[in-house]
């Protein structure tokens, strides 16, 4: 009786080991990355979903999408005071600071900003959506973790990576939605 349990346990362990092992090709990739030096290997480390996005070249198969979005949604944190719209002026500085949001590298927010990028969707007039609760929350969530609504989005996860704190995310949200923000100036 005991031996049967033992054999069963060993079999399960074996299956687990095989499933968690990297393919020979993945092992080879890891070996190449390691050969680039410790610091390179350290910064090239991936979390589970970065690895998944890489594997599928940023186009997830439909059966992966649901669980992916769920995992990413669980990562979103909100400001302690619960206010998802902060100060648009601080938001503007974060939007254009290359070391912080760096949003303007891809998105035009204030059309007066020289050299704003056009790779991402233009955000001029974004505030015409109003400031109802769902709009504010959608905007906040998108900035905090772009992968929670779009798997493997080209947009990076500013809040998840700690580049923007929840409070700072609320400021950038205000920069986009506040009617007084230059994003929404009457033109």
């Amino acid at each position: 009786m005991k031996t049967r349990y033992f054999v069963g346990l060993m079999a399960m362990l074996l299956v687990g080991l095989t499933l968690s092992q990297q393919s020979p090709f993945q092992q080879r990739v890891q070996q190449a990355i390691n050969s680039g030096g410790n610091k390179f290997a350290e910064t090239m480390k991936q979390d589970r979903d970065q690895a998944l996005c890489s594997q599928y070249r940023d186009k997830l198969p439909p059966e992966e999408v649901g669980a992916f979005l769920e995992r990413q949604r669980a990562l979103i944190k909100y400001p302690a005071d619960g206010k998802l719209m902060g100060d648009w002026k601080q938001g503007e500085a974060l939007f254009t600071n290359p070391r912080k949001g760096n949003c303007y590298a891809c998105h035009t927010g204030d059309p007066k900003e020289a050299g704003a990028g056009r790779m991402g969707p233009g955000l001029v007039g974004y505030g015409q959506r109003g400031t109802s609760e769902p709009v504010v929350k959608y905007t906040y969530d998108k900035i905090y973790n772009a992968w929670a609504s779009m798997p493997c989005s080209l947009m990076y996860r500013a809040g998840y990576h700690g580049i923007l704190t929840p409070e700072e995310t609320a400021h950038v949200t205000a920069f986009l939605l506040d009617p007084a923000s230059p994003v929404n100036a009457k033109r």
Binding site: M44, Q46, C53, S54, D58, W147, R157, G162, I163
Partner: peptide, 8 residues
């Protein structure tokens, strides 16, 4: 295609 770092 390897996505990594805090800018994904």
């Amino acid at each position: 295609y390897h996505r990594a770092g805090d800018r994904d």
